[in-house]
Amino acid sequence: MAAILIHAAIPLTIILVYALVAIWGERKIAGFIQDRLGPMRVGGWHGWAQSIADLLKLIQKEDIIPTNASRFLFKFAPFMMFAASYAAFAVIPFSSAYIGSMINIGVFYLLAVTSILTLSVIMAGWASNNKWSLLGGMRSAAQMVSYEVPTIATVLTVVLVAGSLNLMTVTEMQAGNDTLGFLPNWLIFQNPFLIVAFIIFFISILAESHRVPFDLPESESELVGGYQTEYSGMRWAMFMLAEYADMLLLSLLGATLFFGGWNSPFGDFMGGPAWGFFWFMLKGLLLVFVMMWIRWTLPRYRVDQLMHICWNILIPLSFINLVLTALWEVIF
């Protein structure tokens, strides 16, 4: 029993530690990109305790539920949002020794569960009965729903090359170091079209996890806080945590599908479960870092540009890419 509970709590610990580090790190990165310093005072060295202070403060913030809001949905939305994004971690192979659940439709399940996020966002927007929230929720739903198509299409491309839906199997087949004689056997090096697929995938996960340049649902300068406008204190913190968890989840999915998951880039050197976890998190956090880098570098798109990019460029491109990948796989 205890073993089972620990089994289910391992990703939770990872998410919590990651969220504390990532929020602090994001502010430091923002600082350095904007020629500032970022948090410096709290806790001593470079403000390392900043996110702990934020968390403790959010705990003591008052919780407001507006009179006009639908109370049940308003309270239920953060539960659903975090539970959905946490449930998706069940199929992520953190190392060769740990995976939450070995179901054989792993990727498929992950994509299905992350769709629930759209539902909880729109639920939060609707329940608040606030104009900003509703606009943010509707925009968010349109955006997430649209960008889900290229995301799934590129994942499909990888599944086609890998021939399995289980992420553990997908990772295991990327072991070794003999593509072109020296490159690791990662899927991105296996097929030239998968490089294109990765670029489409990365753009789509930026939009899926509401990162700049696609952060229209919560664009502060036009929609106050988007669907989170009416949420305060710990409820709001849960949304924030779920968003950061979602970011990590999609980055880890990218690392598994394209960059060999927990496989070491040096073949057997520095292999094993513990090093596997290290490599996996390194790859995932590197993608998270790129997302933060993009956030503080690029301006935001307009709604019509956002939809144009998705429907007119990414979706046709991802399907053409799928057909070309299939052709390549048949020929070679």
């Binding site: 089972i4 289910a8 709590a9 539970a83 946490y86 069940a90 939450g100 399940y109």
Partner: peptide
Amino acid sequence: GYILLFIVTGA
């Protein structure tokens, strides 16, 4: 069952 466990843990 593990998946259900994860959902419950999150909630």
